[in-house]
Design a protein around this nucleic acid. Structure first.
Length: 263
DNA sequence: TGACTTGTTCAAAT
DNA sequence: GATTTGAACAAGTC
């Protein structure tokens, strides 16, 4: 699922393929993904325009336009990007296609259509208005500690709450807590300062490494859960057996014998 | 066939 | 008012 590292890669992908090219035709095949704007408005804003750069906050990608602000992309569960020659067959789940003047097309694909697309004037204001927390790679350890030491929910739930810190999703939260040997159901404010600092350090280092490898799971083999979220696996650390549990309405995988529960 | 999954949002509860 | 809980959303996968 697209979490912070995947979204960072999507930004890189756009910068590599799609900057400074005139957008000639916009095709929107599924207006369902539009958030607060009409198809006409999106088309008008993009046609004749150009991408200049990208920036990311948590799982949100903002594509800077030459004129009139930013195109905001959120990839939901199944959002993806595909850049191809315009005479090739478009991808199956294309939701938005931008045909560039140079004969290439950038498609936003989304099979389950939980992604979101809109136009944004001011990125900072957008983030503030929606109440998102700092990006997981931009927050300091002290800020992290302050936020997590007052929350009374499961640490996994808190890590995934985009209003506390932005960017961590279900899969990475399982890995972070596995690396820290902390049970995902442990209550955030019951953890010691040292434990919270450890979680902070792991969060940053796992995300950074994933970003470095373009979120390719095959290059993150020394982690355990990232590509392998299942119950009944043998824990590589203590030979216990991994378990499944729904925590905060989300699936959680962990090793109950070496990830300690603090309640 | 229908249960399951996922990130976000929103409503309800505390 | 702030925080927490839990359902809803869409639709492919198994």
């Amino acid at each position: 699922m697209p979490e912070l590292p995947e979204v960072e890669s999507f930004g890189k992908y756009i910068r590599k393929t799609s900057l400074h090219k005139k957008i000639e035709v916009v095709k929107l095949t599924s207006p369902l993904v539009l958030q607060g704007i009409t198809a006409r408005k999106l088309t008008q804003a993009l046609e004749g325009n150009m991408f200049e750069d990208t920036q990311r906050h948590g799982k949100f990608l903002f594509v800077e336009l030459k004129k009139n602000g930013y195109l905001m992309l959120h990839f939901g569960l199944t959002g993806d990007l595909e850049y191809f020659r315009s005479d090739e067959t478009p991808p199956r789940f294309a939701v938005l296609m931008l045909h560039f003047a140079d004969g290439h097309t950038l498609a936003f694909t989304d099979s389950r259509k939980l992604g979101k697309i809109t136009l944004v004037d001011d990125v900072e204001k957008f983030i503030e208005k929606r109440g998102y927390g700092k990006d997981a790679l931009k927050i300091s350890d002290d800020e992290f500690l302050k936020l997590f030491s007052k929350r009374k929910v499961a640490i996994k739930t808190a890590l995934m709450n985009q209003k506390i810190i932005a960017g961590v999703g279900n899969e990475f939260s399982d890995e972070i807590l596995f690396q820290c040997k902390i049970h995902p159901e442990s209550v955030s404010n019951k953890l010691s300062e040292a434990q919270l600092r450890k979680i902070y350090k792991e969060t940053v280092s796992i995300l950074k490494e994933a970003v470095k490898h373009n979120a390719e799971r095959s290059k993150l083999e020394h982690y355990f859960f990232l590509d392998n979220r299942k119950a009944g696996l043998k824990c590589p650390r203590c030979k216990g057996e991994t378990e499944f549990k729904t925590i905060g309405g989300r699936s959680a995988y962990f090793c109950p014998s070496c990830q300690k529960l603090y309640k």
